[in-house]
């Protein structure tokens, strides 16, 4: 299939970027979106041009490294997939595809489609951990966890921190991500010791990074490749309120 790509090219964080048009001819339908970019890049390199920089790692939808805006949607068309799991058969011969980096004040562009998502790491550092006793690991079944809590915690833990929620939110808000991390730990007894300080520290780190606020529209949930639910945001709000009151 032949495609026209409009790709955001930006040489560095301080450089001015722009959309550059490329003709991508003869792309196999079974190529993934990243493989399509690989093909385009090898041709660019053969012509002595700078290849398009993009983030990627596992290419099987579980690491959260890849991600860009494809025709105005994070990870492109379709639901429950990351950019690496998007296949070119979703597009048609002759299509024009606009490819931009995730945009947020908290996610500055490093180069082309690569953005720095260190703000997420800072949020995790602020409270995304638990205290454990040193020594040998305790027997797994000594801590009873109700089945529904285990399920809900596991659903929240599915968040891979790709940043699609921030990218699609009209306010570039990170609350879906933070709510997944908070929920994952708040629902389990292992998260109890730091529960309140976590709910304050992670929100403070989120605010300090310059993300926007939540407008409760649910666009993030609709675009999340792991289907993280808005119900987690309600839990984050409860946890933060509870921690504020008990502080």
């Amino acid at each position: 299939m032949d495609l026209t790509l409009k790709v955001w090219r930006q040489a560095g964080p301080k450089e001015k970027g722009r959309l550059v048009t490329y003709e991508a001819k003869g792309i196999p339908e079974d190529a993934s979106f990243l493989e399509m970019l690989d093909i385009v890049n090898s041709r660019l390199e053969a012509q002595g041009e700078e290849p398009i920089a993009f983030d990627h790692d596992c290419r099987e939808g579980i690491c959260g490294s890849c991600g860009c805006m494809i025709n105005g949607r994070p990870h492109g068309p379709g639901q429950g997939i990351t950019t690496c799991q998007l296949y070119m058969r979703k597009f048609h011969h002759g299509d024009t595809i606009v490819i931009e980096p995730f945009r947020a004040r908290a996610f500055p562009v490093v180069k082309d489609l690569v953005v720095a998502r260190s703000a997420f790491d800072k949020i995790i550092q602020a409270g995304g951990f638990i205290s454990v006793n040193t020594g040998s690991a305790p027997e797994a079944n000594t801590i009873p966890v109700p089945k529904p809590n285990a399920e809900a915690a596991m659903d929240a833990a599915a968040c891979i921190g790709c940043g699609a929620c921030v990218a699609t939110c009209k306010n570039a808000s990170a609350v879906l991500f933070v709510s997944a991390k908070i929920s994952h730990l708040a629902l389990l007894p292992q998260g109890e010791p730091e529960r309140e300080r976590r709910a304050l520290a992670m929100v403070a780190a989120m605010d300090a990074a310059g993300f926007g606020h939540c407008s409760n529209e649910g666009e993030c949930e609709a675009e999340c490749p792991k289907g993280i639910s808005l119900v987690n945001i309600a839990r984050l709000n409860r946890e933060h309120l509870r921690a504020t009151v008990r502080k």
Binding site: M69, R103, N171, S173, G212, H213, S215, E217, E219
Partner: peptide, 23 residues
């Protein structure tokens, strides 16, 4: 705060259909 959270706008942005005219 929301207006300053994304200094550079997208050239193309589509909704996933969850937001409403009201929101």
């Amino acid at each position: 705060g929301n207006w300053t959270a994304r200094p550079q706008r997208y050239a193309v942005k589509r909704t996933a259909g969850s937001s409403t005219f009201a929101s």
